[in-house]
């Protein structure tokens, strides 16, 4: 037993569960790959690569860039400030999420859509832009309210707290 654990790297139950799982995976994969195997394999593995090595690094980079720009800007000012990265982050995230899910309709890529459903796909881009506008506007209003509280003498928002956006 100890020998097995040392050779394998975990207990026998771990191995049994994984083998059982791979048997099912194999059974389903044979069927999944029965037609156009290479394209399907590319989609399956590509899905993980697309997310882990492209989408995630891109949005992380966008977030880091925004952070560094904002930090820089707030250093230059000597007025008390309010961290506002999240007033950018949240609406950008929500708007991006809607685009990520509904991009075929928003960008009018779903060619069969109007013919199949009898509905026009021309409304989606405008609606997405409108929602995006509302999200950023609401965020701006929320930020303005917070700014007002801080800049009012004896304002009730506690002193600018931790976070890089507020470093004096």
């Amino acid at each position: 037993m100890a020998r097995f654990v040392r050779w394998y790297g975990s207990g026998p139950l771990h191995l049994l569960v994984l083998i059982a799982s791979f048997a099912l995976t194999g059974y389903a994969l044979v069927r999944l790959f029965a037609v156009q195997p290479w394209q399907v394999a590319i989609w399956l593995v590509g899905a993980a690569i697309l997310h882990d090595l492209i989408l995630l690094p891109l949005y992380s980079l966008a977030d880091l860039s925004a952070l560094s720009v904002l930090r820089h800007r707030s250093d230059a000012s000597d007025r008390p400030t309010v961290p506002w990265i999240n007033h950018l982050r949240v609406p950008a995230f929500l708007s991006g999420l809607l685009l990520l899910v509904w991009f075929p309709l928003i960008l009018r890529l779903a060619v069969p859509y109007p013919g199949d459903t009898g509905l026009s796909d021309s409304i989606y881009l405008g609606r997405w832009l409108a929602i995006t506008g509302v999200l950023f506007a609401a965020s701006a209003v929320a930020f303005a309210v917070r700014l007002r509280r801080v800049h009012r003498p004896g304002g009730d928002e506690s002193r600018p707290s931790a976070g890089p956006g507020t470093a004096p």
Partner: peptide
């Protein structure tokens, strides 16, 4: 969204894909 760019029949891909996924999910 009727955006049929995936390789082959949706039913095949989504059904067998679900089994591939769930096998790993249970583990």
């Amino acid at each position: 969204q009727l955006y049929y760019v995936f390789p082959g029949s949706f039913y095949r891909l989504h059904f067998y894909g679900a089994w591939v996924f769930i096998a790993a999910f249970v583990v």
